[in-house]
Structures are given as C-alpha cells and as structure tokens.
Amino acid sequence: MTLLLGRHEFPDDATLMMAIVNRTPDSFYDRGATWAEDQAFDRVGLVVEQGAEIVDIGGIKAAPGVEVDAAEEIRRVASFVARVRSAYPSLVISVDTWRAEVARVVCAEGADVLNDAWGGADPGLPEVAAQAGAALVCTHTGGVVPRTRPHRIEYADLMASVLADTVAYADRAVAAGVDRRSVLIDPAHDFGKNTHHSLEVTRRLGEMVATGWPVLVSLSNKDFVGETLDLPVGERLTGTLAATAVAALHGARVYRVHEVVETRQVVDMVNTIAGRRPPARAVRGLA
C-alpha cells in the first residue's frame, strides 16, 4: 500500500528508516546524549545524511521514571519539531507521544506522523491525527498503562491479541477520518511483552503483514535482544540486525532505529534476496 505520511508519499515497495531522536535526559540507549537541543538537532542532520526518511522525536522515555506532564513534553518537543520542519522540509517528522494534547501542538508545528507507542491509551489521538492530516502508528501493548514495565503479563493467544488490537486501532483511526494510507501497525516489541512474546511476534510478523496494513517495527537495541543474547545495551547491534533481517523478510515497511546505515543495508539486502528490490548494480557474470 502507498504510504502517505503527512506531507510525504512513498510508493508501495518503499522501506523507510525512522531514526530515533530523543529529547530526553534519560532514554535507555543514548542516556541523554541529545538532551541538549543543539545536539538533538545535530543528530537530525546526521541521520538525514545517513539516508533516514523519518525522524521520530520523543520527549519522554518509555520506561518508568521522572514524571513528565504534557506541558513539559510540549516544551521538550514542540519548538524542536518546528526547527526541524523549517530546516528539513522534505524530512518526515514523527513524534513519539500518546497524548492527544501534545499531538495537537506538534502537528501544528509540522509533525507528519504520530507514533502512539502506547497503543491508544489516549482515545483522542486518532481525531487529532485526522484533523491534522497526520499519519498514525497503531501499536499493541496488551492494554498496559503508559510507562510501565511488563510484569507477569500473559496472553491466551499472543498473536490473536496483537492482530485484533492493532487492526481494531487502525480501523478506529480510519473511522475517525485518518487517511487509510496513513495508518501503520506495530507489534511493539518489549511493550506489554516478555522476551518470549517479542520473539514470537518477530517470528510471526508475516501474520501482521498479511493484514494489509503497513507494518512498523521498533527493535533497536531492545531488552528482548539483550536477554536473548545476554548482552547489555551497547552490545546489541548484531542481535538487532538479525531481528531486523527476519522482519524485513516478512515484509515490514518502516524500521525505527538508532543505527540508520547498518539497518538500511540489512533491509536492502534482505529485500533484494526476497526479490522485492533489484541489486544496486549487477555486472558479475553478465558482462
């Protein structure tokens, strides 16, 4: 399906890199490296140079921590979105937020995508996306409260829950007026899931792709990779890329990443093996 991400349209065979840009002092991977606005802006420049089509700007770390209210989230994110919009008109700007109140402000500043990592916790979000002409990422969290860690969460049928919840959210978004081409679904690895669950949704991602909704995956350096390989943050790139390859083979469209260059190479390689993309160059044996 053609993707319409705010002002930007992508053909149905395009895979997209969504680079993570944190406006937080405490996110797990970069530990506040881009907390200073200029450093966050420099990271945007870097990932654009590396070929990212989308930046995903977040003002609140996913894990529990210091309370960040809507006013503070807006303060962290909104003016930064405006700055990026002005400097990079052709870049897709996504904002990682579950709050409709924040979404309304960032869309006015130029956001193209609302990445609702907490799976519809705020029922007002689809209406905001519809009114702003923004895209919406519909994630599965198993109904957990935002910024909580999974604790003994279990599913009678994990994939049934993932499929039912994300598709229902996507349908709700379309009913609210969001363009059908502007809705993505995301199994949300690690969110409301133990490591076994995240591995299962990776293994069975093809069932999400088969719904026809474009699939976004957010795998980058997450705990399910760390636990699988018994590796701390900072040593999870290889595992992340292995999971990325599986997601790509299943047909995921958008990849939310810390490492743009490595992920792009893996996704292109896998999609070329799968016959969905030609080699960049082919002369060997053909001269």
């Binding site: 080699p279 082919a282 002369v283 053909l286």
Partner: peptide, 12 residues
Amino acid sequence: APLLLAEYAAAG
C-alpha cells in the same frame, strides 16, 4: 551481454 536483458536489470 546478458546485462542488457530485463531479467538481469539492476537499480542502476
């Protein structure tokens, strides 16, 4: 040269 054939086309 087989590289002229459509079935062996590359992006470039």
